[in-house]
Write a protein that binds this DNA or RNA. Structure first.
Lengths: 340, 340
DNA sequence: CTGTTAGCGCATTCAA
DNA sequence: TTGAATGCGCTAACAG
């Protein structure tokens, strides 16, 4: 039998209430008594039964998710997953609110963050733009004692509890490994298309990609990254223009969104097509893989990311450490051949 | 507020005990009364608080894992992960026992299964050999009302609650997609090495691989699969022999274990090396990727698999359905460039 | 500063 | 066939 609060109350020769006080770090207990209790805890190897504690507390976890608005398929899918998780709320004792903010607008994130009352919120998950102001707003929040995780895109400098997303440097390196091998010794240019270099995920992908290309595939030269704000029309224009003026583009790596634009730029063309690696499996990219327009898609499962964010936030709200290894989000590589 | 048993007792005009009886399907309640209660449940949208129920029941979940013994790095790693999960037992109310059985020995699995007393076990996870006898033993077990999941390798014909492993057909297809693209238009043979075709994961990989190679890369012809019982020495012999007699082997796909043997066969050679795709990231395959001896490794995270097995088993033991999407195990693709 | 007591939502005796 | 009472492990008033 696991020891209970009763056991340690006996062992320490104090009452339940006192045990509870030291267990929860509440004030109003003599130093001596604290030590007696802590001794008992250690001797008996007591670990608190979180389920019972939550029951007694009628604990609920009010959680807030801050995600960018806009047409970005991935983000809409992310929002859908948050809604799905939200439907399991009764079972998981969560109460999830979604705040959508204009995309690529650090101020909007700052505003959303400062609208939140730390007193009534158990945790925050935010798809962050990596700017000083956002980092400051997050920091202020963390200072108030509210656990905060970054979702999809990180805030490298901050003290967020956790980053719920993939290793984006590894993703960029993977893209380079694939493109390098697919190009099979050809020399030429690789066009790199990004959304915004204020997004840490995009920065990381770009730099991982550049590293591997430089060290492993020196015959391939990077063009870009061109920034498109994840806007399909801009992607289309950038890619179409590049393909027209640079005949030696052997591959394209779109590390941001706007795959629709990429597909449009590619589909009208004649002759030899470049190898293409992009991110996120959506209806469009799925189709493009099937067509042979895209060669590979690097995907992150945002359902996993959302569930991981919730687990981490709940754990941190209880002052526990999440199981680190469990929360690592894996990268999917999809090709025409292993589409789900 | 979520409705509680009290609420539905009121609503139905009966006592707590009666509510509990119908909720848990226990006998001794009049048909009429059952309907009254069920009506109330439906009207109030009651869902049972599992945590509270478990507290009242002092529920623990005695779980058994059946895994093959032997030197196979992956299996030893799997066992390590089970041990790690086992250390979190107090918190998760599990009590995990590991049974190791001789590898490639269906009888041993059958024996292990029949040694178990269904009365004292809440769930079983088994790394299965896919033979009729094993399937029968598993079935007998399921019949007794004990949830059973397959781990790593499935029992396709059975009524196991869940398969905790990767989609091995997709893994095989991925391997083919990679090898096909890496070979970049060369014609020649691809040597396929397997452990045992009584393992459903190996069968699935082989057939997924063959499908994609035939349909997408008709210039590549399959040699094999040769069976090695996942024995390093046999892998070495098979590969070395094939390479010697067949100069036109452009790639090798090892879909089983024994990577050590594969590395030995490869490392002494001169001249152009074949492209190599294998499974499972271990110290050896990691090194081989780094060396450039292997081109890609398809990996499954057995930590995830173990934790998933535990979640599913617990859920099924409580008569609940696990969150399906959450339990899908993803495939990792590692290359030299994105090693962890 | 410390202890007593009454629940949290559910399961389970034991009586009726 | 049904109900009243008690307790699971923990927290939180409320007294002292």
């Amino acid at each position: 039998m696991r020891p209970t609060v009763h056991d340690i109350a006996n062992e320490a020769g104090v009452s339940l209430a006192t045990v509870d006080r030291v267990l929860n770090g509440r004030p109003g207990v003599r130093r001596q008594t604290v030590e007696k209790v802590e001794g008992a805890v250690r001797r008996l190897g007591y670990v608190r039964d979180v389920a019972a504690a939550n029951l007694a507390k009628r604990r609920v976890y009010p959680l807030v998710f801050i995600v960018p608005a806009g047409p970005n398929s991935f983000m809409r899918n992310l929002e859908r997953e948050i809604r799905a998780a939200s439907e399991r709320s009764p079972v998981e004792r969560t109460m999830i609110r979604i705040e959508t903010v204009p995309p690529f607008d650090p101020q909007a994130i700052v505003a959303a963050l400062s609208r939140l009352d730390p007193e009534t919120v158990a945790g925050v998950a935010v798809v962050a733009t990596d700017t000083a102001e956002v980092r400051a707003a997050a920091e202020r929040f963390i200072e108030a004692g509210v656990p905060l995780v970054t979702l999809v895109s990180d805030l490298p400098g901050s003290r967020r509890s956790h980053f719920c997303g993939i290793d984006n440097r590894a993703a960029g390196r993977t893209a380079a490994g694939l493109i390098g091998r697919f190009a099979a010794g050809q020399a030429g240019k690789v066009l790199v298309v990004a959304g915004s270099l204020t997004l840490s995920d995009h920065i990381d992908r770009a730099s991982g990609f550049a590293d591997v290309l430089a060290s492993e595939f020196p015959d391939l030269e990077i063009m870009g990254p061109v920034e498109t704000n994840d806007d399909g029309a801009m992607v289309r224009k950038a890619v179409a223009g590049a393909l027209e003026h640079q005949p030696d583009i052997v591959a394209i790596y779109n590390l941001g969104a706007g795959n629709r634009g990429l597909i449009e730029a590619l589909s009208g063309r004649e002759g030899h097509q470049p190898r293409v690696v992009a991110h996120e499996l959506t209806a469009h990219s799925h189709q493009a893989l099937k067509n042979g327009l895209f060669d590979a898609i690097i995907n992150q499962d945002c359902g996993h990311e959302v569930r991981s964010a919730i687990r981490v936030l709940k754990a941190r709200a209880d002052g526990l450490d999440p199981v680190k290894a469990q929360e690592r989000i894996r990268i999917d590589v999809f090709m025409k051949d292993n589409l789900p």
